[in-house]
Amino acid sequence: MDLGEGITVGIAAARVGVTVRTLHHWDRIGLAGPSGRSSGGYRLYLAGDVERLRRVVAYRGAGLSLEEIGDVLDVGSSEVGAVLRKRRAELAAEMDDLRRLDERLARLTDAHERGVLLSGEEQRAAFGDRWRPDWVDQAKERWGDSAQWAQFAEGSAGRTAEQWRAQADAMRQWECDAAEALGRGVEPDADEAFALADRHQSVFGAWFPITRSMQVCLGRLFESDEGFAAHYDQVYPGLAGLIREVFDAAALAEGIDPGCPVWS
């Protein structure tokens, strides 16, 4: 059977490189179907039908939806360019969105792997001259598998150098205020000390949220870890131990046994 007499759906599908099921779908939605009939009443694709199928395949390969392809095929030739330009503009916008999404994913990936997306010089500018960039690597090695590291990284991905500096300033101010209050003898279970504990939760929460029990764990870390203890000693001698006492007292006031802190 030659094309002049029409061809079956199977032959038409093979000629344009799609499945029979696809041609049945295009016929069902009115996009492209057979217009001929055999002597036995079977529907056949005529030459014009196959040409339309080829155009559908071409535009589908260019990324147009079936609805958009129908618009292209059913308008005059002079209007096809306008339809295609509109689709290209839409595609350009989609590509911009995808590029921005890729940039966000790249920053998230880097943040999970590096922690702080600042150069060593930028880190020292934000955190002070005593800051060592390798401390971030040590933190990742120590806590990289924790949910808190993930939270820290997610916040880090969107944080600018100015925001890092502002957060570091807030933490330094808290340390100075804690040193001033505890240095003049404020008791760990005094309201002023409890206010310091609450404020620490708020300031520290910019890195990741902490419960009171987690705060107690941090207090013990500040006191027992040589690096943390040395840092707080530079602010005020013995400050790490005083902070730990405040956190313990705040936990006890809320019915939490500071002797058995849980990181949760």
Rank of each mutant, 00 (worst) to 15 (best):
R124T: 09
W135K: 02
Q151W: 08
W131H: 13
A153N: 01
E141H: 05
M1A: 10
W143R: 08
T160F: 08
P237T: 14
S38A: 14
P34C: 07
P261D: 08
G205D: 02
G81M: 07
D137G: 06
A111V: 10
E141K: 03
D129K: 14
A32V: 09
D27A: 04
D102V: 15
Q215E: 06
A240M: 02
V20W: 01
A92W: 09
E90S: 13
V72R: 08
D97Q: 12
L108A: 11
R172L: 08
T19Q: 06
G183Q: 06
E180D: 14
F222L: 12
G183H: 01
D169M: 04
R43K: 09
E141N: 05
A178E: 01
L117H: 14
A240Q: 00
E175W: 11
A168S: 13
P133Y: 07
S146W: 08
Q201F: 04
V16M: 03
E245H: 05
E175Y: 07
R130P: 03
W131Y: 15
G70T: 15
G185K: 04
A179G: 14
W131Q: 12
R107L: 14
E5W: 10
G183M: 09
M214L: 00
A12S: 06
E154Y: 06
R87A: 13
A230I: 07
L73E: 06
Q148V: 04
G76M: 03
E5F: 05
R43P: 07
H25Q: 12
G120R: 06
W143G: 01
S77V: 11
A89M: 05
G219H: 03
G255L: 10
V20Q: 13
D129F: 10
K86Y: 06
R212A: 02
I210V: 11
W164Q: 04
R85H: 05
D248L: 03
L218Y: 05
D137S: 05
D74I: 03
L252P: 01
L117W: 12
W26A: 09
S38R: 13
L3K: 15
G241F: 04
L91E: 12
A111C: 05
S146I: 04
D177M: 06
D191H: 07
